[in-house]
Design a binder for these strands. Structure first.
Length: 832
RNA sequence: GGGCGGGUGGCGGAACUGGCAGACGCACCAGACUUAGGAUCUGGCGCCGCGAGGCGUGAGGGUUCGAGUCCCUCCCCGCCCA
């Protein structure tokens, strides 16, 4: 046997990668007759070299994909590159290189690095969003959505990032009004832009969440909050001589307890209704608020502050006049920018009322329990539902019924209506940047906005754009691009110079993988019927509300277009944790704790890196990089390697001898079959690869403890070795493949372990015939006994009472009760 | 402040529907082999105690024959939102 004595991954990994590729082992769709599985990881943005986070996601997805393939499914496990976007463009501004060129290079490097990790991707389906053959379908979707009114043009207030010099989405504005990408301040700017009417799908997207039972609950919750449905009513408070103040409330049942109204400082009515004598104070306050950050202003911890405008508004239900204030905790953008304040039943209103001496009026009593005192004796607001009092016609109703009645009344009497509000906003996707999908419309002096006809797609990005990062969009400065003709009249026209948000690209790429080369449509619906939805989607939880909401929206649009059959794109979502530096801090140049996968792979091999990613913790947990732990995993693979080498004499043992294995070797067989079960269970349930690998380690340890001496012994060892190699295949595929071929020899010359069936365990061997039963006295462990599995209480009790240590604790005491749990324990409850 | 996760040895983590807490790995200690060891193999390794034994899953209470697991009160950490 020519087996190398030492484990040298460098000498084997590449060989297997070529063989897998040569055999097309990971090509999807080769077995239309079997069940499919679509395993997807979020595709990378190739901004530079691969980092550990990438290695982790793709290793998790790959282990699963390889496992499922061995389970006999036709597995689709594709990969591509999210190649358009700001970082490439910003880098271009810095060093003057064209984003296309840089992106191409990055992809080449990235792809090569992914290949060294041995991922079982179907590379023939690779998709690059920067290719016109991809983004033309973004444009196609745009046109379809424009036709259906899902895309529209609006003059909107937009978040303008002063650093990126572009509009960014609400979701991309992070703390302190800063840009998610570059950290620069974000200011408000009025700009014409294109938007997707995602709000028209709000209810749908919300309802769909109920069906996502295999998504992490917290992601579902985040989406639910982001969509943010609130059911309530709009009510007009009349102001003499002015237009009424429109307030939105979810608690119209408390409206008889409204004792004042509060406007946002930016509310357009503020200026007009403020009484002359209050003008100076109000202006000063508005000015101060303008300079304060919204989050800081409305934070629960922030003190409630406000000023009286001198004006009064009429509560339409009671005809009562209430004072109008402005305050820091009301935001113009939220709701109507005005709220009715019910201090008895809203904590914030309560605190405000206390501070400024405004009246507090109780109008809701708890349905049961103690009655609330008068308003001035309250110590905090009562915010739960209850029964109405002092509320006119609605008195005596419970809150829910009152809300319905009062909202309907508003409508009937013409001063309001039942209303549903959403936190979700339409998705503005225009970007004043170069490196994105051109928006396929032209502006004609005679015909206005004219869509580019489908047969003229793609509108390609001109290579010669000057990218400076300032001023008007780069495309505006390319005359050959801008100047075109109107598709309708043939006269001169100008092209749209904005490009699309790159979240468009990632909203449907999973479908493009189904027929990536199709140049007649975005993808083949017949393929979609076979492969969608994605069975498992692996990626970071940071995409909980943007990408994961947008692509759910997009899938619904595709559903309406008849391209896909179902509403939801992904059945099961797996969110993986971060790989931190060895010091437990986020990997960053700033801390100098960055460890790149490349050099680690070069030194220890891909299999060790993969094992590390899987063994450190379950997928959803954050992990710290650990050089020691990596050493340990390399050592494990070396140990596996050595035991195969040391047991070469077992490779030819006849399988027929297995049945005669006895003693330790029968135990080894049990261990082997239990390991198959444990490894399988680990993957199958919650992707607990760490426990699967631990089980494999135990089996390897068991092999080290045994010295086979007979034919049956050797057969048992051989069986264990084959199991080790096979079970290792999803995790450390190269070593597994090599060792498997070593054991099987010529018999497996043309076979690949990657395509081999996953092993089955023999239930008879998994089931124990003798079990260890814990013996307790008064709940404390006092010994253990071996007993046949089927042993009943009497038998186990007799055995237990035979134990000296147990007897010592039973002597002279009366056994009051015996608790017997078959196969587990027996507990003597004794007294006096 | 709200929502969702978490707190288990020196460290990462195991523990099925309440049933022997600490699997597996790392680190550490000891021994063997060795010219050598940052290699390898074997053994040890929660804490206190010479021992018998006692104590131990963030703190305190409860339910139970039995609680890491269930219930109540509280503390701390992380993420998301405000």
């Amino acid at each position: 046997m020519a087996m190398n004595e030492r484990y040298e991954p460098q000498s084997i990994e590449q060989r297997w990668q070529s063989r897998w590729e040569g055999a097309g082992a990971f090509r999807a769709g080769r077995r239309p007759e079997v069940e499919k599985r679509y395993v997807l990881e979020m595709f990378p943005y190739p901004s530079g070299a691969m980092h550990m986070g990438h290695a982790r996601v793709y290793t998790i997805g790959d282990a699963l994909a390889r496992y499922l393939r061995m389970r006999g499914y036709d597995v689709l496990h594709p990969i591509g590159f999210d190649a358009l976007g700001l970082p490439a463009e910003n880098a271009a501004i810095k060093d003057g290189r064209h984003p296309a060129e840089r992106t191409r290079e990055n992809i080449v490097a990235f792809r090569a690095e992914m290949k060294t990790l041995g991922y079982a991707f179907d590379w023939e389906r690779e998709v690059v969003t920067a290719d016109p053959s991809y983004y033309r379908w973004n444009q196609w979707f745009f046109l379809k959505m424009l036709e259906r009114g899902i895309v529209y043009r609006r003059e909107g207030k937009a978040n303008w990032c002063t650093g990126c010099a572009t509009v960014i989405a609400n979701e991309q504005v992070v703390e302190d009004n800063r840009c998610e990408r570059c950290g620069s301040p974000v200011v408000e700017k009025v700009i014409p832009e294109w938007a997707f009417r995602i709000t028209a799908f709000a209810q749908d997207l919300l309802d769909g969440l109920d069906g996502l039972t295999e998504w992490p609950e917290r992601i579902v919750t985040m989406q639910r909050n982001w969509i943010g449905k609130s059911v309530g009513a709009e009510v007009d408070f009349a102001v003499p001589g002015q237009e009424p103040i429109k307030v939105f409330t979810t608690r119209v049942d408390t409206i008889h307890g409204c004792t004042y109204v509060v406007l946002a400082p930016e509310h357009p009515l503020v200026e007009r209704l403020t009484r002359p004598e209050r003008q100076a104070e109000v202006r000063a306050f508005v000015e101060r608020m303008r300079k304060t950050d919204a989050a800081e202003r409305t934070g629960e911890a922030a003190p409630k502050e406000g000023v009286f405008t001198g004006a009064r508004a009429v509560n339409p239900y009671t005809g009562e006049e209430v004072p109008v204030w402005i305050a820091n905790f009301v935001l113009a953008e939220y709701g109507t920018g005005a709220v009715m304040s019910v201090p008895a039943h809203d904590q914030r209103d309560f605190e405000f009322a206390r501070k400024y001496g405004l009246p507090i009026r109780v109008v809701i009593q708890p349905a049961k329990g103690e009655r609330l005192p008068r308003g001035d004796a309250l110590t905090e607001a009562y915010t739960a539902d209850g029964v109405l009092e002092a509320s006119g016609d609605a008195t005596g109703l419970d809150s829910a019924a009152a809300r319905e009645k009062l909202a309907a009344e508003a409508k009937a009497r013409g001063f309001g209506q039942p209303t549903v509000r959403w936190h979700l906003r339409d998705w503005g996707f225009s970007r004043q940047r170069y490196w994105g999908t051109p928006i396929p419309v032209v502006y004609c002096p005679d015909h206005g906005v004219v869509p580019v006809p489908e047969d003229q797609l793609p509108v390609t990005l001109p290579a010669e754009a000057l990218i400076t990062g300032t001023g008007e969009p780069p495309l505006a400065k390319v005359p050959s691009f801008v100047n075109t003709t109107c598709p309708r009249c043939g006269g001169p026209a100008r092209r749209e110079v904005d490009t699309m948000d790159t979240f468009v690209d990632s909203s449907w790429y999973y479908a493009r993988y189904l027929s990536p080369k199709d140049d007649t449509r975005p993808f083949d619906p017949a393929e979609a019927k076979r492969w969608l939805p994605v069975d498992v989607y692996v990626g970071g939880p940071e995409h909980a509300v943007m990408h994961l909401l947008y692509f759910r929206f997009w899938h619904r649009v595709m559903h309406r277009l008849g391209l896909v059959q179902e509403d939801e794109p992904v059945k099961r979502l797996v969110t993986q944790g971060i790989v931190n530096g060895p010091d437990g801090r986020k990997m960053s140049k700033r801390w100098g704790n960055v460890v790149a996968p490349g050099p680690i792979v070069a030194r220890f091999g891909a299999d060790t890196v993969r094992l590390f990613m899987l063994f450190a913790a379950p997928p959803e947990k954050d992990i710290d990089w650990s050089d020691e732990q990596v050493d340990g995993l390399f050592r494990f693979l070396s140990r596996v390697w050595r035991i195969f080498h040391a047991r070469q004499e077992c490779f030819r043992a006849p399988e027929a001898a297995l049945a005669q294995a006895q003693g330790d070797f029968l135990e080894l067989r049990r261990k082997t079959h239990r390991t198959i079960k444990r490894v399988t269970d680990g993957i199958q349930g919650d992707l607990k690869f760490n426990t699967s690998i631990a089980a494999l380690m135990e089996l390897v340890n068991a092999l080290y403890a045994l010295e086979p001496a007979s034919e049956p012994d050797r057969a048992a060892v051989r069986e264990a070795l084959i199991a080790v190699a096979t079970l290792l295949a999803p995790f450390a595929p190269h070593a597994a493949e090599e060792l498997w071929h070593e054991v099987l020899g010529p018999a497996a010359r043309d076979a690949l372990l990657a395509e081999h069936p996953w092993p089955a365990f023999d239930p008879a061997l998994v089931a124990a015939d003798v079990v260890t039963i814990a013996v307790q006295v008064n709940g404390k462990l006092r010994g253990e006994v071996q007993a046949p599995v089927a042993a009943g209480e009497a038998e186990v009790r007799a055995l237990a009472e035979g134990e000296e240590r147990v007897r010592a604790h039973l002597d002279g005491k009366s056994v009051r009760k015996v608790v017997f749990v078959p196969k587990r324990l027996i507990n003597f409850v004794v007294g006096g």
